[in-house]
Nucleic acid binder design. Structure first.
Lengths: 109, 109
DNA sequence: TCAAGTACCTTGTTATGCAAGGTACTTTAG
DNA sequence: CTAAAGTACCTTGCATAACAAGGTACTTGA
């Protein structure tokens, strides 16, 4: 057991939450997501992101549309569905509770 | 994909962190941990907790000692090792960064 | 025309939470 | 004395999901 692995575990569930948030602010494609997450120090690689986006789409939380690019192949731009927005609202509450619960435990010295 | 499952994912990596924190404050056994985590709204069941404690022990982060009980079978009381304390310090930093990163993303409207 | 860049996707591995079920010790009611 | 209830520890099998590594396909420019 090493620190890196535990850190990966800590980020796990948060990823989906952050990705939905970014998509909720406007249409983005995979590289936009990787860029913004990396800037916020949440590292994500393609092998994680693509299956995750596919899961979100199959679950009806996001949708996508093809957009031509002037600098390469076409891109899949993702956008929120009504269902996805409701889902994200619930996750907002879960996140607040999780931070509150965890801080309660780690500050209870 | 349902909200419950995503909520479980969000809690996943945090669990280990919270458990180490509780043990670092003093010797506890499994039921103490379940009680304190449940009070903080972090639900954990035996099938999750026992393998996790065994992993932490095998990794040398915690140790245990048997203590006789007056109300039933003997209990395994867990305590931190020096290595475990160092590990926990690193996780403290990771947690702070994770909260900061996530809040950065979800508040970037 | 072919190398480099961009973009999307898949396979196999590993980690881990959880449901369900099991073993064993102690106390108490009948 | 025995059986049931309570307490405590543990294991097996399953499902989920991040990640490493590798693959396909389109576009541009030298």
């Amino acid at each position: 057991m090493n620190v890196e692995n535990t850190q990966v575990q800590m980020r796990k569930g948060i990823l989906e939450f952050c990705i939905l948030h970014i998509i909720s602010r406007g249409e983005v494609y995979a590289s936009d997501l990787i860029e913004e997450l990396t800037a916020a120090k949440i590292i994500v690689v393609e092998g994680t992101l693509y299956p995750l986006l596919t899961r979100l789409r199959k679950a009806g939380l996001v949708d996508y549309k093809w957009v031509e690019s002037t600098t390469g192949p076409p891109r899949k731009y993702y956008l929120m569905t009504t269902e996805g927005t409701e889902f994200l609202n619930k996750l907002d509450d879960t996140w607040k509770e999780l931070v509150e619960s965890t801080n309660k435990i780690i500050n209870n010295k």
